[in-house]
Write a protein that binds this DNA or RNA. Structure first.
Lengths: 250, 250
DNA sequence: AAGTGGTCTAGACCACCTT
DNA sequence: AGGTGGTCTAGACCACTTC
C-alpha cells in the first residue's frame, strides 16, 4: 500500500548534525553566530535533550562549534596561523611555496600568556638527546587574539645556558638561538617530529581546549654544525589554529 | 558530626575515565585487551548505561580504545609509522635526526587497498596551482597490517601524464616522480602544508575511522627547477598511525 | 526568574557477534 | 539465547549567565 520506505538509515543525531554542518559550511550560520540551543533542537526535531546534546557533541568533536556554559554554542571562526618552519628558521625563499591552500593567513601578533624559566633535570628521553641531565627549562604558552594556541617547553643544557640571557624570560633579539650563537653554539640543523592526537587533560587545561579538539605535538631538536644537540623543544599546537608548512628540495 | 566532605568535584563519567585511562597508561590494561563492558562499568560504578557509555566515548575520543559493535571495546596498540618526508624524497642524512622520540619504528610493508586512476577536471584551487584544469587523478588508500592509514589523491597535469605510465595503477620503479623525470619534468622543490583536524564523514569512511580520531591533512606541491608545479598531492593520514618528520638546515 | 549547557537515571528497543 | 555496543526517550537536578 504505502510507498517503499526511503530507508533513512541515518540516526536522528546524524540528521541533526548533517543539517547544522551544512549550514555552517554553506555559511548560512556564520562564524561567531549562535547555534540553535538544545531546547531549540528538541522542539525543531522532536527529539530529547540527550539526543540534541549528542548532536552538538559531534560538532564540537569536529571543531565546528565551541560551547560556553550557560550561554550557548557558537560557530567557530578562527583564521589559522601559518607556521612555516623552514622560512622562519632559515631565510630561504621558495618560489613554489606561495599561494598554497591559503592566501590570507595574514601575520597576527602572537603574545606570551605565561612563561616560566627554571633549572631542572630533563626527562630521560630529552637528557639522552642533549647528553645532559641538568637543563634550563623554558615553559610558555602563546596566544593569538586572546586564545591560547601553543604550549612550548624548551630544554637547553645548563652548562651552555647558565648565566646567559637564556635564563631570563626575555632572551633578547633573535631569541634563544641567537644567544646560543653568541656563545659559539649556533644551531643549524633541525629535525621536527610531529604527532597528531587528542590532548591529555594537562594539555587541555593549559590551552583551554574544548573537548574533541585535536592537537599537533612537535618535537624539534636543534643541533650545531658539529652535531651537538643544543635544544629540544616540545610544542603542543592547537589543531585548528595552525597550518604548518615545511619546504625542501630533493 | 561527619568529616568534612572530600569535594570530589569530578563527574562520575570523569572518574570512570580516569581509572580506565590510568590502567591503560600504566599497562595493567594491555594493547588488544578488552576494556570492561558498559554493563560491567554499570555494575562496578553503580551508574547507568548512559554514563558508562559516555566514559567510553571519552576514551574513544582520546584514541585510547577502539570499539567493535557487538563485541566490545579494546585497548589500542599500533606502532606508529615514521614518515620522513625529507629523507624519503631526498637522500640526505641527518646526524641529529637519529633516535628522536622513537627508536623502534621499524619499517613495515605498506600495501595499497584500492587505487583509481582517471582523468578529470581538477578542483579550482588545484587547477590554479597546476595552471591546468585537465589532470590525471591518482586516488588510493594505503594500509599497514590490515589497517587503512592513509588516503592520498594526486593531481598531475594531463598534458604531462597522458599516455605515460602515470596513467597506469602501477607507475613502475621510482613511481610518479621518476616518470616525470623521464619526460623532463623532474620535481625537485617540495612544499608540504599540514593541518590537523577531525575527519569528515567521507574521510571516516575511506579510512574506516572510529569517531574521535583526528587526522593530519597534508598538501604537497612538487615543482620542477623551473618552478613549474607538476603535482599536487592531498593526503589524509590517520593521526595515531604516524609520526611525521621533517629535517632542514638554517 | 528564565535560559543555557552539564550530568545523570531508568528503561526501552535495535543491530551485531558469539555460542 | 545471551552479551555487546548503538540509539533514544522522559524526566530530573545542577551550575552558570543574563536580565
Amino acid at each position: 500500500m504505502t510507498a517503499p520506505s526511503e530507508e533513512p538509515k541515518v540516526s536522528l543525531r546524524e540528521r541533526i548534525v548533517g543539517q547544522l554542518r551544512a549550514q555552517i559550511e554553506s555559511g548560512s550560520l556564520k562564524p561567531g553566530e549562535q547555534v540553535p540551543s538544545e531546547n531549540a533542537l528538541t522542539d525543531e526535531f522532536g527529539v530529547s535533550q540527550t539526543t540534541a546534546r549528542a548532536a552538538l557533541a559531534v560538532l564540537r568533536g569536529e571543531g565546528l562549534i565551541h560551547v560556553v556554559r550557560g550561554k550557548g554554542a557558537y560557530v567557530r571562526g578562527f583564521k589559522p596561523i601559518l607556521r612555516d618552519a623552514t622560512t622562519r628558521l632559515s631565510a630561504q625563499q621558495w618560489a613554489a611555496g606561495h599561494a598554497i591552500w591559503l592566501a590570507d593567513l595574514g601575520l597576527r601578533p602572537m603574545g606570551v600568556d605565561r612563561i616560566d624559566v627554571s633549572r631542572a633535570n630533563a626527562p630521560d628521553d630529552v637528557a639522552e638527546l642533549l647528553r645532559a641531565a641538568a637543563v634550563v627549562v623554558r615553559d610558555r604558552v602563546y596566544s593569538v587574539e586572546g586564545r591560547p594556541v601553543q604550549w612550548a617547553v624548551s630544554y637547553i643544557p645548563a652548562d651552555l645556558a647558565a648565566g646567559t640571557p637564556i635564563e631570563r624570560p626575555d632572551t633578547g633579539p633573535g631569541g634563544t638561538y641567537a644567544r646560543l650563537r653568541d656563545i659559539g653554539h649556533e644551531p643549524v640543523k633541525f629535525v621536527e617530529q610531529v604527532r597528531v592526537r587528542m590532548p591529555n587533560p594537562v594539555e587541555r587545561k593549559h590551552l583551554k581546549l574544548d573537548v574533541g579538539q585535536p592537537v599537533a605535538v612537535i618535537r624539534r631538536t636543534a643541533a650545531t654544525a658539529a652535531d651537538r644537540v643544543v635544544e629540544v623543544n616540545d610544542m603542543v599546537l592547537v589543531g585548528d589554529a595552525y597550518v604548518m608548512q615545511w619546504s625542501f628540495t630533493s
